[in-house]
């Protein structure tokens, strides 16, 4: 046992990497873990996506540090650049501002998940600690002719079948995505004239719908307009946002603002003094 430990410590010494890499690992590694945790625990999916993108870039750096130059670049270009952008597109489609509730609905699910995660992580670490990883050759030899050339040699010789099959898989995936998302129109889209005529025939809302609120300090389309009594009218927000529940109710704020405005304008016009006098 002691002999093993001794051997282990010597191997540690032999396989150590540079101090610079160690520093980089500990700093970036911490950031990567925080990014991963944020991915899981951020309420808004768009934030999650950004955190994940950050983690992936750090992983790209680690790839480079590990001598996988090609993969490091691909990680940035394909993963962070393409795949995460695809995620962001879908997040936009689903609703960028929609925040998830993090309260758990399945009884015991959260605790079970955390317990399993903890146990799994500990066991995994124990497994790595147990494994006899006393081999550390470095990639100096393998990368001698260039990392990309080395990979290409392997891909087009040893792994050529797997490579071809992944090509087929990608084609299939592309077709599958189209099949899943494509909706065939069974009827011609209505022209504007037809829609207008239909509205007249129905005689429900003849004039155009009221415009949304006009407090144009930010995206104003999701703010309902106020009725004369100050209550917001959901009718003024477009249907898509209404369906998503992404209506920002600012009526209280607006009424408060209105009141303040009135007061200020009153003061300026001297109405307030007159009013005070009248009170006296």
């Amino acid at each position: 046992m002691t002999a093993q430990l001794a051997a282990h410590s010597t191997s540690l010494a032999a396989y150590s990497t540079s101090t610079g890499e160690a520093f980089q690992f500990w700093v970036l590694g911490t950031v990567a873990v925080i990014g991963a945790l944020c991915t899981v625990f951020m309420k808004k999916s768009v934030h999650s996506a950004l955190c994940l993108a950050g983690t992936m870039i750090i992983l790209a750096v680690f790839y480079l540090a590990n001598g996988a130059y090609f993969l490091g670049i691909v990680q940035v270009v394909v993963y962070t650049g393409a795949i995460m952008m695809l995620f962001l597109f879908v997040v936009m489609l689903v609703g960028v501002t929609a925040a998830d509730s993090l309260t758990e609905t399945i009884k015991g699910q959260r605790w079970l998940a955390l317990l399993c995660g903890l146990g799994f992580g500990i066991l995994l670490c124990a497994g790595i600690g147990n494994a006899s990883l006393n081999e550390f050759n470095g990639l100096a030899q393998a990368n001698a002719g260039g990392n990309v050339e080395g990979l290409a040699t392997l891909i087009f010789t040893k792994y050529v079948f797997a490579f071809e099959i992944t090509g087929a898989l990608l084609i299939t995936a592309a077709v599958g995505a189209m099949v899943l998302t494509h909706r065939e129109r069974t009827e011609r889209a209505k022209t504007q004239r037809e829609m207008a005529e239909e509205r007249v025939r129905k005689n429900v809302q003849l004039p155009p719908l009221p415009a949304p609120g006009v407090y144009a300090r930010h995206n104003a389309v999701d703010i309902p307009g106020l009725l004369p009594d100050g209550t917001p009218s959901e009718l003024t927000v477009i249907k898509t946002l209404r369906d998503r529940g992404q209506i920002r109710d600012v009526s209280d704020e607006a009424l408060k603002d209105l009141k303040a405005l009135e007061q200020r304008s009153g003061e300026r016009l001297g109405r307030g003094d007159r009013a005070e006098e009248a009170a006296k």
Binding site: V33, L37, T39, C116, G117, F120, G121, C125
Partner: peptide, 8 residues
């Protein structure tokens, strides 16, 4: 660690 966080 990252794998476990992802799984959780």
């Amino acid at each position: 660690l990252l794998f476990t966080i992802g799984a959780t």
